[in-house]
Simulated assay, not measured.
Amino acid sequence: MLRPEYPIRTERLTLRPFADGDYDDLHLMTGDPDVVRYLYWEVHTPEETRSALARRKGQTALTDEGQWLVLAMEAAPAGEPRVVGQVVLRWASVVHRQGELGFTLSPAFQGHGYAREAAEAMLGLGFESLGLHRIYAACDTRNAPSWGLLTRLGMRREAHFVEDEIFKGEYGDQYIYAMLDREWKERQSSSR
């Protein structure tokens, strides 16, 4: 079980549960075709964003297999705090101690290291607080910024699934990246 103490602070981010006041920033993300291009949802209408926000507000802990922990990435790049993205961890298997990592960032804030900071914090929660053995991430092979980030995080590419599912009307390919708890520990000890 994982019930983080909020907020979680990184060098430049505050990771916290979503709140009612996050609607505008969330809709900038969920309503942007460039953001959702490689995600399983389509561009959100305002109503769909309101529904998504209500769901996210309840995804603040992992108490059972299959649940998602969904946190807002809040930054203040111009002095004014705002949600620049989201980072997620799914408790994929209790028995096998597996988790799944994901992240989404508004285009205006991509390329500044925010997703890396948030993903590293989520890996720490998964390995150190939840006691996971393996955390994986899946991404579309065309999404070079995402798989580039997974590589920089120290995750290894384990698989390339070719046309494994119909994605937005056509067969798509995806990469699977993963890291083990011992690799996380080695990476943490070498960075000190």
Rank of each mutant, 00 (worst) to 15 (best):
S191W: 00
P33K: 03
E47D: 12
R157F: 07
R82S: 03
H44K: 09
Q174E: 15
R116V: 06
D34S: 10
R9N: 09
P145Y: 02
R134G: 07
F127Y: 07
D181G: 12
G111W: 02
G172I: 12
F167S: 09
W147C: 09
I135Y: 09
Q98M: 14
G21V: 08
V35T: 04
E165L: 15
A178W: 03
R134Q: 10
P81H: 06
E48K: 13
H133G: 07
H160A: 14
M122E: 06
P77S: 01
G79W: 11
Y171F: 13
W184Y: 06
P145R: 03
L28P: 02
F167T: 08
Q188S: 12
E117I: 03
R55S: 13
T10P: 02
H44F: 08
I135K: 02
A19T: 13
G154W: 03
R82V: 08
K168L: 13
T49L: 08
S106T: 08
G172D: 12
A108N: 04
L125S: 02
G111Y: 05
D24F: 09
A137H: 04
G58Q: 09
L125P: 10
P33W: 12
R156D: 06
E74C: 05
M179Q: 00
W41G: 02
E5R: 14
R134D: 06
R156P: 00
L123V: 09
E163T: 04
A138I: 14
H27L: 07
L71Q: 03
G66M: 14
W68I: 11
F103D: 02
T45S: 15
S51P: 03
E74H: 00
R192F: 03
E117V: 03
L149Y: 00
R9D: 10
P7L: 01
D140V: 10
S146H: 01
F18E: 05
L89S: 00
Q174H: 15
P17I: 11
H160Q: 09
A61D: 07
P46T: 15
P33H: 06
S129I: 15
A19Y: 04
G85E: 07
A144L: 04
V43H: 12
P33Y: 12
R187P: 02
L26Q: 08
D64S: 14
Y114I: 07
A75K: 03
K185G: 14
V84T: 00
R56I: 14
A178V: 05
F18P: 01
R56D: 11
V36A: 09
R192A: 14
P7F: 07
L105V: 01
S191M: 11
Q98N: 09
R3L: 11
N143Q: 09
E48Q: 13
A115M: 02
V36S: 01
Y38M: 10
A137R: 09
I135H: 06
D34A: 10
I8T: 04
R152W: 00
T141V: 11
E11G: 07
T30F: 14
L53A: 04
W184P: 04
M1L: 05
P4L: 02
R55E: 13
H96V: 08
Y114G: 04
R82P: 05
P107F: 11
A137F: 11
T45E: 07
L13P: 01
H112K: 08
L153C: 00
A138T: 15
P46K: 13
L150E: 01
E11M: 04
E74R: 03
